[in-house]
């Protein structure tokens, strides 16, 4: 499969020594990256590879580690590049993408309050959907006690 997606992955591999990567289908590729490189990679993607649209930032809880999952795509083509960065649960901090993609702000806020991934550099990391008194409970974590709701 010699697609643009694969080419993208190869470029990432050359430049940022990304090791774990996969081409799932012509339009879906993913790569696991080191958390400290996310900002540099995003800059590279948006400036040089026309990946100018951040589709979403998801987070997931895998026991000891939290994972920030970025879906980066473009307005001109349909390739969705999924970047995954593992951060330890004890210190879940990762660079914010807001300098590159403006719309990362709210996704990061959401991931912050629901999963506790803290984004360094986000201008306003305030709770977005949860009431203030529920902050710090991180309901989307697997060890969250408040679900199902006891009332």
């Amino acid at each position: 499969m010699n697609t643009t997606g694969e080419l993208t992955l190869n470029m990432l591999k050359e430049k940022f020594q990304v090791t774990e990567m996969r081409v799932e289908s012509p339009n879906r590729v993913w790569a696991r990256i080191a958390p400290d490189k996310i900002l540099a990679i995003a800059k590279f993607l948006s400036n040089e590879l026309e990946f100018d649209h951040l589709s979403s930032i998801a987070g997931a809880d895998y026991g000891e580690a939290l994972e920030a999952v970025y879906q980066i795509t473009a307005y001109s083509h349909g390739i969705v590049l999924t970047l995954k960065a593992k951060v330890p649960k004890s210190n879940p901090v990762i660079d914010s993408l807001t300098p590159v993609y403006w719309n990362a702000a709210w996704y990061e806020r959401e991931a912050y309050e629901l999963l506790g991934i803290s984004f360094r550099g986000n201008p306003n990391l305030a709770p977005l959907v949860l009431p203030a008194e529920m902050m710090g409970e991180y309901p989307l974590r697997k060890d969250y006690k408040g679900y199902p709701n006891p009332t």
Binding site: S55, S56, A58, G59, A60, D61, V69, Q71, T82
Partner: peptide
């Protein structure tokens, strides 16, 4: 507009993680 869903399956009857964009 663009509606996306990120689904993680761990091979059980329930999804492991669903993120809605």
């Amino acid at each position: 507009g663009e509606m996306g869903m990120y689904i993680v399956s761990d091979g059980t009857f329930k999804p492991y993680r669903v993120k809605v964009r």
